[in-house]
């Protein structure tokens, strides 16, 4: 290894950090908890992909996964609870950042990235809810579509985002693609960028 390592990994995991960053109240580990939730969501999500079928079969495939497949219910529950915990920890992380004024200059871009990540987390939670494929998901999709239609060109936007769900089933191929690939992919990329920016800005600064 050379004397200096300016690589991505070197920035993410430097050998030394500020001593104050070790204090629990410096971060409350909330950013780490959010990322851990994302990792659990990715692993359980990939496992769910093997059986889940979006669209008309969504509810039936989840029902079978829950009751027939070994550990299917456990994996679905882990996915659900990790998603709920992620929304909460990302929000609490944001509260901690504002409290410790970590949005101040040099970290403004990271603040913007964090706000975008919070929005993406909420959208992932919503799209995951729609993929459950039952009547509740159909109602939630109907409300979302109605809101999109208020915008100019809203019908087209609603079709791009929601596909064509029914009031009894919010699960569509389109929503599946958004949830599994686009939203999750962008969230994953932004998190890595977020961590990299934190290290570029000398890591977590103690209060």
């Amino acid at each position: 290894m050379g004397k200096h390592n300016n690589s991505f990994t070197g920035h993410m995991r430097p050998r030394q950090i500020m001593a104050g960053a070790l204090r629990l109240r410096a971060t409350f580990c909330l950013g780490g908890f959010s990322f851990l939730a994302f990792i659990v969501l990715t692993i359980t999500g990939v496992l769910l992909l093997f059986y889940y079928q979006p669209g008309e079969r969504a509810f039936a495939s989840l029902s079978e996964l829950d009751s027939v497949l070994p550990y299917g219910g456990l994996i679905r529950s882990l996915h659900f609870w990790a998603g709920q915990l992620m929304v909460i920890t990302v929000f609490l992380h944001m509260v901690r950042v504002v409290w410790s004024r970590a949005y101040r200059p040099l970290k403004e871009l990271n603040w913007l990235t964090g706000v975008a990540l919070f929005g993406l987390t909420v959208m992932l939670d919503y799209s995951g809810y729609l993929l459950r494929g039952g009547q509740e998901s159909g109602s939630a999709a109907t409300v979302g579509q109605a809101l999109f239609r208020l915008l100019p060109g809203g019908q087209a936007l609603a079709t791009i985002f929601f596909g064509q769900p029914t009031p009894q089933n919010g699960s569509t191929i389109g929503m599946y693609v958004w949830h599994v690939f686009i939203l999750a992919g962008v969230a994953g990329f932004l998190q890595l960028f977020h961590f990299w920016r934190i290290r570029r800005g000398s890591g977590v600064r103690p209060l």
């Binding site: 509810f59 029902s63 219910g73 494929g133 509740e136 009894q168």
Partner: peptide, 8 residues
């Protein structure tokens, strides 16, 4: 336990 939605 995470319940399923109501069936379509």
């Amino acid at each position: 336990k995470v319940s399923l939605d109501s069936s379509p």
